[in-house]
């Protein structure tokens, strides 16, 4: 019993001693260093427009108007809720999932005036893991370019040029996937550019 008690006392002393270091000094120094070195990024990579925060470069937002590129479907909260991240967690044999994907594919073809037998890029009709994925595949962006061009009354080539300019390749040529950040692309179409770029 005495041994237990002494171990317990040592444990509490260890908790206090270690907590001061790993829960106090450590996160506080990381906070100060990151704030000094990467002020915009540690603050959430926020987008300012006319002095107001309109979103984050890293977090997808809902876009439904035809003149904007549309993000991937979202299961975060009731859609793109950046305080409730998450996916659908529906399995591959789920009726709900297969139905939803089919409905979205039909809608995608209609919105973008694609032929009935056109294959839809998988990322355009599936929900991301976070529900906040800011990226779409380059193929998905190219297929949406025509619609965006028509809505904005500009030639499609102009929009495709922007898509190309905002396509990010694999890191070091091998890591990750080619992708287009819709926040950057949509704001570039509106004439706002990511200063951190």
């Amino acid at each position: 019993m005495k041994i237990w008690l002494s171990e317990l006392l040592t444990s509490f002393r260890a908790i206090i001693g270690l907590a001061v270091i790993v829960c106090g000094i450590y996160p506080a120094s990381v906070w100060l260093l990151n704030r000094a070195l990467f002020p915009a990024k540690s603050g959430g990579s926020l987008i300012q427009r006319d002095g107001r925060v309109v979103g984050s470069w890293l977090i997808a937002q809902a876009f439904v108007e035809p003149r904007y590129f549309h993000p991937r479907p979202s299961a975060a909260g009731s859609g793109y809720d950046a305080s409730r991240s998450g996916g659908t967690n529906l399995g591959p044999t789920s009726k709900t999932l297969v139905k939803t994907v089919g409905r979205r594919a039909a809608q995608y073809r209609e919105e973008n005036e694609l032929p009935q037998d056109a294959l839809v890029p998988a990322d355009a009709v599936t929900s991301s893991g976070s529900g906040l994925d800011p990226h779409i595949s380059p193929e998905n962006a190219r297929l949406q370019a025509g619609r965006v061009a028509r809505a904005r009354g500009v030639p499609e080539e102009k929009i495709l040029e922007q898509v190309k300019a905002y396509t990010e390749g694999r890191t070091l040529g091998i890591i990750g996937q080619p992708r287009v950040n819709i926040m950057k692309l949509n704001l570039a179409l509106d004439g706002v550019h990511d200063v951190g770029r």
């Binding site: 996160p27 990381v30 906070w31 260093l33 990151n34 704030r35 070195l37 990467f38 990024k41 540690s42 603050g43 959430g44 990579s45 926020l46 987008i47 427009r49 107001r52 925060v53 309109v54 979103g55 984050s56 890293l58 937002q61 809902a62 876009f63 439904v64 108007e65 904007y68 909260g77 009731s78 859609g79 793109y80 809720d81 305080s83 949509n186 704001l187 509106d190």
Partner: peptide, 27 residues
């Protein structure tokens, strides 16, 4: 941090969506 991971103690940020019609969840 250099890649974009956040580190701050700010309250959650409320952004006015870029698209006027985009009203995520009313509740």
């Amino acid at each position: 941090g250099s890649q974009g991971v956040v580190q701050n103690f700010k309250p959650y940020i409320t952004a006015r969506p870029i698209e006027a019609t985009a009203a995520p969840s009313p509740e």
